[in-house]
């Protein structure tokens, strides 16, 4: 029989997405046997992060302060607000270096079948942020999945009703893409959403 602290560790590791009993056991043995320093670091980092991180009052992303450095940066254009699902999406948009406005991170998406509705997403918080003085345009950059689209539509109608100008990231054939090698769903939708030139 294994000691209960080992069982507890294995059980705790299973809270990670995609980690079943087998992987959890492997991780636990690895941490305890092969990498005790790494294990201590992981434990401390986790506890520390839990203690100091919170949601930015402006963009809802993780930060250690009341307002994150990005939101507090006076050189960013406060008239633009880009709405994304997750911090990883924000990081991608930052990498483009094509956007100098501010963000709002939903930390999820609307998914009626999973029971994620406006209440779980705290859409009231987004409405409050987007209707603040000085926001000229809200750019919806949620994913192009059905859930992302449902989220975008919902936010658009909520903000539109409050007189906020709302735009949506456009969608179509990827940059440098050849039609021959693009998936037909994308081409089909690009035809439907074609634009005048």
């Amino acid at each position: 029989m294994s000691p209960s602290s080992l069982d507890e560790l294995i059980e705790a590791l299973r809270c990670l997405p995609g980690v079943g009993p087998k992987s959890a056991q492997r991780m636990a043995y690895h941490l305890l046997q092969r990498d005790q320093r790494g294990a201590a670091r992981l434990g401390n980092a986790l506890l520390h992060a839990l203690e100091v991180l919170r949601h930015c009052a402006r963009c809802n992303s993780f930060t250690e302060d009341e307002v994150c450095p990005r939101c507090a940066n006076p050189r960013r254009d406060a008239a633009l607000l880009c709405v994304v699902e997750m911090p990883a999406d924000l990081a991608m948009i930052e990498q483009t270096q094509s956007y100098n406005g501010l963000y709002y991170v939903l930390m999820g998406r609307l998914s009626p079948l999973d029971g994620v509705g406006p209440r779980e997403l705290r859409l009231d918080k987004l409405i409050a942020r987007a209707t603040e003085e000085g926001v000229r345009e809200v750019i919806l950059a949620t994913n192009f999945t059905n859930e992302g689209e449902a989220t975008a539509h919902t936010v658009a109608s909520l903000l539109g009703a409050r007189g906020v100008k709302v735009s949506r990231l456009s969608r179509g054939v990827p940059v440098g893409g050849e039609l021959e090698h693009t998936d037909i769903g994308t081409i089909g939708q690009a035809l439907i959403e074609r634009r005048a030139v």
Binding site: P112, L113, N146, H153, S157, I192
Partner: peptide
């Protein structure tokens, strides 16, 4: 075409 707007929410229903 992909469902959009209210039609999409109806689709979930």
């Amino acid at each position: 075409p992909l469902l959009i707007g209210r039609a999409l929410i109806c689709g979930y229903y």
